[in-house]
Structures are given as C-alpha cells and as structure tokens.
Design a protein around this nucleic acid. Structure first.
Lengths: 357, 357
DNA sequence: TCTTATATTGTTAGCGCTCACAATAGCGCT
DNA sequence: AGCGCTATTGTGAGCGCTAACAATATAAGA
C-alpha cells in the first residue's frame, strides 16, 4: 500500500474518463465527440473513421455509409489541432497586411481567402499596422500556429523577421512590391515602374511642372522617386514633393493643395492615393480653379468613386483581386508540390486616363 | 523471435528520433526546436520552460533568465497546436463576415483584430459570401480549429448553424443586427430603428414623396421596411421601393434613378448604400436636376467620400470600429470570466445632415 | 494448388504540449 | 527540535489525431 499511494486516485480518474467516453453510447455535446466515439458507434477503428473523412477513396462504400451515419448521429466535429499536430499539416494559411482599412489590401485578402477556401484552406489574419514594428512579434505568434503557408505584404522585413521566415520552411508569397528579391515567391507590381509610367504619361501630355503628394509610406515613396527620376531624365526638373502622414486622406489632399497654391502653382499633381486626389480636385474647384486646365490631377488605386467624380479622376489601376488570387494559386501550387511556373508574377498596372489630366 | 517480429524496426525508429532530438546540443532549424530541447539546454524540466513562457510569475527570476537565454539561443517557436490540444485553449477567435469588400465589415474586422491582438488573441477569418449558403460548411471548418470565441455577422442563421453554435459552447457575439434574440451576445444597432430614423428625418424636413433604393440584402430590407412603415404611420403613402442585386454600386444608383425619373419623380430618395446614393446624385446632376431641390438624397454608411461629394451627402453613420472593438471586448470579458455588463450592446446610429437633403 | 500482388482494415506509437499532482526546499512558529 | 505552511520545480499521463506499419481478406498469376 505504501509503495503505490498515488495509484488509486489515478485509476479513479482514468475510470471516470473511460466512463465518460465510453459509457452509454455517445456524449451528446459535452466534452466534445471524438473520432473514437464515432468509431465505436460505427463498429470500426478510429483510423477508418479518419480515412472516411480525409481519404474516402481508400474505404469501401459500405463502410463509408456506416461511418458517415455515425458521424451525422454524433454531430462529430473533427479537432484539427490534434490532426495538425499528428500530421504536421494544418491547412491554414496566414496573411500579414498593414491594415484592412485600405481597399487595396482588403480586396486582395478577400480574393486570397476565397481562393484558398476552394481548396479547403483557411485564413489566419494578422494586422501589422503601418509602421510594421509589430511584424516580428506578429510573425512569431503566427508561426506558433504552424500555418502551411504565408502571405506577406511588402518585401522589406527586419533581419530577425527574415530569419524567422527562412526557419519556417514553408511556402511564402510576398505581395504588392516587386522591388526586392523575394524570400520565396512574389506577386505584385513594380512601384518604380508605376512612377516611371506616371512620369512618362504626364510628360507626354505636355506637363512640365509637376507636384507629387505622397504619404509617408515606403511604397508610395518608391513611386515618387520613380516619378522624379524619370521626369529628371526627360528634362523636367520643376518637381515639388509633399509628404503627408501615413494613412493618406481626402482632407490631406485639400490641405496640401492649399499650401502649394500659396506659391502660385499651376501644373500636374500626382497623389499617392485617390482619396488625396479627390481632395485636391475639390480644393481646386472650391478655389475656382479649373481641373485639368489650371490643376491636373492623377491619383493612384482607382478606388470605387474615382470614375464617378466630376470630372472623373485619372488614376492608376491595380488589380487587387488578381494579386490575392494569384498569390493564393502560387501558394496552393507549392503546397500541392506542383512545379511553380514563375517565382515572381508581375500583375502590372494600368494608367486610367479620365478627365483630370 | 516470432512473437516480436515488429520490435526491431520500431526500436530503430525510436532511436533515430531520440538521436535527432537529443544528439549534440540543439537542432539548428530542422524539424523544429521543442520545449524539451530548450529544457535540456537550460538544464530544467520542460514544464519549467512552459511556465516561463505562460506564467513567468511562478518561476524564480534566475531560472527565468537561464531559460530565456536558452529560448533565444535555440530560436524556439512554441507549437500552439500542441499547446491548444493539451490545454483546450487556443487563443484564437474566429470571425465570419459576408465580404471584406465593404468597409463596414472590413473596418469592424480591423478594430476587432486590433483589440484582440492586445490580449494575445489571433483572428481566424471566414468569408461567408452574401447568400451565406456557405455558412454551415464554413462554420464546421472553423469549429474544427477550436476557436475560443466567435464573431458573427448578422443574427439569422440556419437551424443547423444554430445547433452547431450551441454545441460549441464558446462565447459568441453577433454583430450589425439587433433584430433577433442573440445566441449569446450581440453588438450592433437596430436596422429597423435606422429606417424609422430616416423616415422621421425626411418627414420632418417636409418631404412627402419618397423613394427607397435598396440592395437585396436582408438588413437593407429591414431598414426599408422601417422607413415604409414609419412613413405610413406619419401619413406618407407615396413611397416607391426599388430593389437592386446584392452588392449595391454607384452604377446601380444611376440606373435606378434613370428609371424612376421616367415617371417624373421628384422628392427624397434613400439609398441603402452611399455608393448608390453617389450614383443618384451624379445622375440627377447629369440630367440638370438640382440636388436637393428636385431630388433629395440620403445614403447609408457615411463612407469616406460622402462628406466630400458636391454637394456633400447626407447619410447615416455607423461606428464600424466601435462595433469591432466592443465585440472584441465583450468576447474578452467572457473569456476572462468577467461578468458581462450587457448581453446586447446598441452602438446606435447617427443621421448626418449635409447638403443633399 | 500455391505463391504473390493488391486492397482494405486494424494496431501501435507518438506529435509537443499542459494539467494535476508529487516532491522538495525554505520559512516561521510553538 | 519539530511541525506545518508556502513557494518552486519535477513527474506522469494524456489531449485527439494520424503515419507507418501489421494483419487480414481477396484476386490474380504461375
């Protein structure tokens, strides 16, 4: 008795577990039904039930029927934590985006999630915020969940982040920006090329005096530099740059134009977002200036309202849904061990000429 | 020999595992570092390492230091699948929304995710689509991941969905709509009250001829009915209702107004979204009608651009971030076993009078 | 007829972690 | 000194599932 003082309670505990699990039939809804419960009811082994769920083609139709009936009867819901732990496949894809308040990001996530759902994958969402200082922590938290693949926004990461990403050894797709060498795969466009495109467009349209209003955002800055450099190469040096805090808004456009006009500016303005461009147009009109006569405006994003402003806004269109969808497909190909056609996919951009330029 | 033909290979397999796990020091990055690896390096038990991570206050500072050093050295990333399986707490909250393309939803998800992240919870995102026929399957997939809590959009669910939800026995918050009895908790506003508010507002402003353009969306329909009923009670019976396909758009507003004008309509129009209202304003202006003189317009949502249209759009503002934040707090309170102040939180709405009414 | 290949089901041993408890150390008190 | 008390660490078992293999049944081939 003295050498096994701990056994009785343990045995008791075991007995209780066993009773709860195997007593009379099936646990209705408490403590959750397990594979074993279903197996017992169906008169097969747990493994067979698992097979019916995951690889039904390897089980005879008769047994499948019996098992499915048992599943329905018990209201069995699989536990993917246990499944993932056992198989090291979670069917989970994690996405990191700065914010959902921007339709470019939320649209891409929408397309990504939809496409992944088709193949039975689910989305773990992480918001990094704009300064993305949280990225390290966020990534750590995300990797703790063992996602099968990763969708990232942007291609600049801290050394620590990059180390974590490499260590994870899972398919990774970086999006939006193609300016750096991707860790694994990339889907997006070249912000520099967009800048060049805008510059060439404005130059071709005859504008020789240009202002750029851009948010303090890394990618907006790359576009701005692309514009400035290209214009410089084309001989246009009268370029004014205005930088505004990160989430650019309509109000910022109004403000920035107001300040710029005190210098008597006339010419073309590119705004790093359509919202800001909208503000510029409204401010110009409010001051009795003609658009595009006195002030020409070209935005970025082709947001919902751009085509319906008066006058309709010239802008740059990015296919945000294509980014999400193509990113999903790149990841799915890798997850299915299919050969990946191209590691870097450029979705390009389109300069949409409307009436403000 | 004949009774143990299977032992040799198993033992071999075991030995390999053991070697890989405990060989010389620590696995650099392959096969993932485990708690045990860290424990061995730190010279403590696995449980102590677990405590340092999860309840550091229960471990002496000296040992904490040693363990943290070992964690850093090995680059240990916890496996929350295993942790969740063992503790039946996943620190995961799942959200189901129809779409992210609508800022009302994506904004709420943004606020929800941000607030949850503060308390160390992460977001599992499910998109149900508008017809939400996928909700059953989606929910099944989500519950398989054992989230600690659930955020749902809308309060109408199929019987099967409701059964699954009850069986899950986790905190659930339903959002946007307060018209039904919540399964557990609810954060949102009454669409009926919004309809009443709009009707009373338009009536007070003197409008006696009203049209309602609403998307084929359940909640938009409730608002519409609220308008019609209230106007009726106020003696206004000249109400025209136009229904458009689900995701309402600017173009639909233009179309709908075009058709309505063939009947010589003059009066006030409510649109179930600001986008549609924008279209109505533009179409009216294109036809030389004065807004609000000939056609008054009031939208819904107070989207970004509403305040900056010309004329600025009257609309109904919902605090989408408040919904996400309050929903998160309701769930967190429940998860922390705090008493929940109120099971139903009405964030209300605000009629924003601008220049189109 | 007796292998040998093929299909289907069952068995065993963990995946990596945490719970519940046991063991030990350190403290003050009578 | 001896007692109990608290604080800290360790131990054993198992969460629910699936990989890998074993076992069996069945069909095909020599």
């Amino acid at each position: 008795m003295s050498d096994t003082p701990t056994l009785p309670p343990r045995k008791a505990a075991k007995a209780i577990t066993a009773k709860t699990g195997t007593g009379r039939g099936v646990r209705p809804s408490s403590g959750r039904v397990t594979l074993g419960d279903v197996a017992k009811l169906a008169g097969v082994s747990a493994m067979t039930v698992s097979r019916v769920i995951n690889r039904p083609e390897s089980v005879t139709p008769e047994i499948q029927t019996i098992v499915r009936k048992a599943i329905a009867e018990t209201g069995y819901v699989p536990n993917l934590l246990a499944g993932g732990l056992a198989s090291s496949r979670t069917r989970l894809v994690a996405a990191v985006v700065p914010t959902l308040t921007h339709v470019l990001f939320s649209g891409a996530i929408q397309a990504l999630t939809d496409r992944l759902a088709m193949d039975g994958y689910q989305m773990l969402l992480g918001l990094s915020g704009y300064p993305s200082e949280r990225e390290d922590n966020l990534l750590h938290a995300i990797l703790s969940r063992c996602p099968d693949a990763l969708y990232l926004t942007g291609t600049t990461h801290s050394p620590e982040t990059r180390r974590q990403l490499r260590a994870a050894r899972i398919p990774i797709v970086e999006t939006w920006d193609l300016s750096h060498k991707p860790i694994d795969m990339a889907v997006g466009f070249s912000h520099q090329a967009v800048g060049r495109g805008i510059a060439e467009y404005l130059h071709a349209r005859g504008y020789r005096r240009v202002a750029v209003f851009s948010a303090e955002d890394e990618r907006a800055t790359i576009r701005r530099d692309g514009i400035v450099d290209t214009l410089g190469a084309l001989g246009v040096t009268d370029v004014t740059c205005v930088t505004t805090p990160a989430p650019s808004s309509l109000a910022m456009g109004r403000d920035a134009l107001g300040r710029l006009l005190t210098g008597g500016f006339r010419g073309a303005i590119h705004c790093s977002s359509d919202s800001m461009a909208h503000g510029v147009v409204l401010e110009a009109q409010a001051r009795g200036l003609s658009v595009p006569g006195d002030i020409a405006v070209i935005g970025f994003g082709d947001l919902d309202f751009a085509a319906y402003m008066s006058p309709p806004l010239s802008t740059v269109r990015i296919d945000r849904f294509a980014i999400g969808r193509l990113a999903a497909e790149a990841l799915l190909d890798r997850l299915a061990d299919k050969p990946v056609a191209q590691k870097v996919v450029d979705v390009g951009f389109e300069i949409v000429e409307r009436a403000t330029t």
